[in-house]
Simulated assay, not measured.
Amino acid sequence: MTTAPTATVPLPAEWRDFFALTKPRVMSLVIFTGLCGLLAAPGSIHPVLGFTAILCIAMGAGGAAALNMWWEADLDAGMKRTAARPIPGGRMDPTSARDFGIGLSVGSVLLMGLGIGWLAASILAVSIVYYAVIYTIWLKPRTPQNIVIGGGAGAFPPLIGWVAVTGDVTLMPVLLFAIIFMWTPPHFWALALFVQIDYAKVGIPMMPVVRGEASTRKQILVYSILLLPVAVAPWFVGGTGALYGVVALVLSALFVALAVPVATRRAGEGDTMRPEKRLFSFSVLYLFLLFAALVADALVRQQGWLS
């Protein structure tokens, strides 16, 4: 953790810097999967309450991200990919980032509890603590399994969205959680393969740094294969229709197909990392399309268009 930015006197922070603390690219996926969980859940929710639930999910994710950047500011300063972030870039003092993260986090849980329900609020609180404390402070600097165990941090949004509508936890939202949990290792390790120099430089024990590329590539393939039955499981248990099932099967098969050249590629076979970058890019598209199919399937079944 750092208590001072790289610049001696931080420049006045702008709204863009506070927005950057929330990791907007990551948040877009968080908001989307949370919204899909909400829309696919059985039952209905008033649009204002639905908007409030998604807003709380976004606020909670943004708050956790801000706390992550506050804690890791010294690490971010040492990595080319993150050196321009608000704190290491000298545009914000750490205290402001910390207070912003705490404010968003606490506010999101209170608003969710008062406006939607305390079960959804409790799960949101767990997701914030999971990312900001368990993953950021405990797992990430200590074990190459940080992404495997920490994958739960990003898997909560569809579960929270579902619970916001139904008020209870059933098998379906747990399966949606499991999908993102299993998706996270191959997604993130594909990225880690082509930015591993940064992680090694600051001493973060990411899998390619600690276990080597060969082991990481094999595990990417293993998790990609394991993702397939988990992604299809909602159809198998009757929670979705064939539309989702077919889309999940096709997308997951493509995921495995793209993981194969990553797993079989040896070190030194070119330096462009094209298979790894291709898998990483597709993994983001995969999650968007999979959860979009979940919502489309729910709409089709609700309207009885395939009956």
Rank of each mutant, 00 (worst) to 15 (best):
P24V: 06
F280H: 04
L243N: 04
M27H: 02
G62Q: 01
A248N: 04
F188G: 00
G115P: 00
T8S: 13
V256S: 03
A66H: 03
A20G: 06
V295Y: 09
W305D: 11
E213M: 08
P12E: 13
G101W: 03
K277T: 09
V295A: 06
R85T: 14
T166F: 05
I54E: 00
G63K: 00
Q302R: 14
I147W: 12
L55E: 05
W305H: 12
A263R: 08
R91S: 09
A190M: 10
L55D: 01
A296P: 01
L119F: 13
T216W: 11
P261D: 08
L104C: 03
I116M: 07
C56R: 01
F288T: 13
G203K: 04
W183L: 09
V169H: 01
L114E: 05
V210Q: 11
K201H: 15
G212C: 05
W70D: 08
L193F: 06
A40N: 08
R98I: 00
K23S: 07
M206I: 02
G239I: 06
A4R: 15
L49T: 13
V126D: 04
G60D: 06
A155H: 10
S252V: 06
A121S: 14
G117D: 12
W15S: 12
V247H: 07
A153N: 03
L306R: 07
V202L: 06
L299F: 14
G115H: 02
G78W: 09
T170G: 09
A41G: 06
G161W: 03
F19H: 11
L289I: 11
G150D: 10
V262Q: 02
L249T: 15
A83G: 01
A292Y: 11
P42N: 10
M79V: 10
G203D: 12
G154T: 07
P173K: 01
T143G: 02
A66Y: 03
V195C: 11
V30P: 00
R266M: 10
V165Q: 03
T170A: 14
I102A: 01
L243Y: 15
P24A: 01
V250D: 06
D76A: 08
R98V: 00
V237K: 01
G270A: 08
G78Y: 14
G50N: 09
G268N: 10
V48D: 12
D76W: 10
Y135W: 11
L243R: 05
D271T: 10
A13C: 11
I160R: 05
A132K: 00
V26W: 09
G239Y: 07
W305C: 06
A231K: 00
G167I: 04
L171C: 05
S28W: 08
S105N: 07
G270Y: 10
H187R: 03
A231S: 13
L175F: 07
V262K: 04
T264K: 12
V163N: 06
W70L: 00
A190Q: 13
S281T: 12
A7F: 09
V250P: 02
F32V: 11
A41Y: 04
